[in-house]
Amino acid sequence: MSYFFQLVVSGIVVGSIYALSALGFVLIYKSSRVLNIAHGQIIAAGAFITYALTVFVGIHIVLSFLLSMVITFFLAMSVERVFLRRLIGEPIISVIMVTIGLMSIIDGIIYMTPFGAENFSFPEFLPKTPISFMGISMSWTQMVGVLITFTMIGAFTWFFKASTVGISMRAVSDDQFASMSIGISVPKVFGLAWATAGLSAAAAGGIIGNITGLNFYVLHSFGIIVFPVVIVGGLDSIFGAIVAGIIMGLIQQFASGYLDGHWGLYGTADVLPYIILLIILLFKPHGLFGIHEIERV
């Protein structure tokens, strides 16, 4: 039985990190209807900034982690200001193409640094002995990762539900013209959406980097790995990202734990999320919690 609960715990840990990684997609899509293809690169950039501040500048890793979120916040805001602001009102596909270009640009910049070609790991500051309870183990890194994830998700949920700026962002998401007519600055909302997505990406990068080590390919791949989470949860739902993230984490653990090694099956954890994705989309084309818009003609 402890095996089952171990898989549940690991599934929740992995799932919550997926949710945090998926959050960046949701935050941008929620306000601007844009799918940011370069999100994985921003996750990687956040992790590398934390490492650089910790190792090269000598700042404590906790402070570096917070600073990297601030830096990525402004970095993402600048990206929106320089590359995307002028595309407001243009077809969505054009904006998505710009994010693909952005992905190549960030790739190129990172490849020009040692981070593009070398492996690194964060200095270890947490105890190495795992936390064990009734045969279930969890590392301190995972525990801290989960705590940060839930804190951030809670903060973002409050932000969108209760703060004026958050409500403005939701209003822009619903109808840009109506929002403008009541005095909301749509460009500012877009900038803020990118900035908050950058902030969450840096947090995700820091946590993933602590779990996997710092390898550019591994880190930026998370932009793709969390795609099923984003789609299953619903592109515009923070709650959906949390639920879908945890569902995916659990599915992967159970698949790996109960299917792999039996009946000649291996690698089911990589395939099953996509099968689940297809099934859910058959019945819920907008994802589990995505808003189904009905247009009056």
Binding site: Y3, Q6, L7, S10, V13, V14, I17, Y18, I208, I211, T212, V218, S221, I225, Q252, Q253, F254, S256, G257, D260, G261, Y266, G267, A269, D270
Partner: peptide, 21 residues
Amino acid sequence: VEIVEHGKDLDNTAMLKRFQS
């Protein structure tokens, strides 16, 4: 005992526990 072809896993708990069992 096992031949595993890995994926892009963030966590190998299930596999490692299976190995142990």
